[in-house]
């Protein structure tokens, strides 16, 4: 599904990603762990098409498309979804309206009929329950005045509605208390399917207790320096990142 090969990325002339290789097959859940500032969010932004990043080397193939030459909306149409580490507040833009416009854009791309307001509300009804999002948040401005936990739940809710093929979850666990974490994890687990891949970015192993990854990668200083299964996450939890660094050196 996703094949990242030797990806080098610069931000403002500073090299942040220094040769990332990652292959994600359909249905797999990959966790990417790493200390703050190692380039995890940069990777998620580059994959979803945010401007301001210069790819100096490497390729990203997504379902036989050269992902890097597509606009953010084209990537979304193909099935890429990013759950933001810091969901953006957009005053004056209605949450439900935004999501309906997004869903219809994606449906149109897929050759499906657009949903009108009533069908849309019916469609999202169950998805709201999935992450126990308060319904009145739907009629508010996008993320405006939402609590930290509500913002993260709203991201997973959007993912449930848009049904992406590849979901990139950037620190969806950060800032959540244990109850909220369970709700979000249950939501994500419900969305796991053989056709859907996920890349979960986190620096706590805690999330992985609830969402079990198939693979764990360690990203340090712009490079994946070790990969393994979920046991690697436990080891990182116990021993920190230094031993992996030393091992790689």
């Amino acid at each position: 599904m996703l094949n990242i090969s030797n990806l080098h990325v610069k931000v403002e002339d500073k090299e942040i990603l220094k040769g990332i290789n990652l292959k994600v097959n359909a249905g797999e859940v990959h966790a990417i762990m790493g200390p703050n500032g190692s380039g995890k969010s940069t990777l998620s932004h580059v994959l979803s098409g945010r401007s301001g990043y210069e790819v100096t080397e490497g390729t990203v193939d997504f379902l036989d498309n050269n992902l890097l030459e597509l606009s953010p909306e084209e990537r979304a149409h193909l099935g890429v979804f990013l759950a933001f580490q810091y969901p953006v507040e957009i005053p004056g833009v209605n949450n439900a309206y935004m999501l309906k416009a997004a869903l219809n854009a994606i449906r149109t791309y897929r050759g499906e009929e657009e949903l009108d307001a009533m069908d849309f509300m019916a469609f999202v009804k169950d998805k709201v329950k999935l992450v126990q999002l308060k319904e009145d948040l739907l009629s508010r401005s996008v993320n405006e005045g939402f609590s930290g936990g509500e913002k993260k739940r709203n991201e997973i809710f959007q993912m449930a509605v848009l049904e992406p093929k590849l979901a990139i979850l950037d620190e969806t666990d950060s800032g959540l208390d244990i109850d909220a974490l369970k709700i979000v994890a249950d939501g994500v687990n419900a969305l796991r399917s053989p056709e859907r891949s996920m890349v979960m970015i986190t620096h706590y192993q805690r999330l992985l207790d609830y969402i079990e990854p198939d693979f764990v990668h360690v990203l340090v200083d712009g490079k994946i320096i070790k990969s393994g299964d979920k046991k690697l996450a436990l080891e990182l939890e116990k021993r920190g990142y230094d031993w992996v660094r030393e091992e790689a050196a």
Partner: peptide, 29 residues
């Protein structure tokens, strides 16, 4: 705002529409 535009576009909304949406929201206030 680039951040707001990117957020909307990352959901599949075209750039043109995202711009119209944000501009409308600004005025509607």
């Amino acid at each position: 705002s680039d951040t707001e535009l990117f957020y909307l576009r990352s959901r599949g909304i075209s750039e043109e529409k995202a711009r119209a949406l944000l501009t409308f929201a600004f005025a509607d206030d």
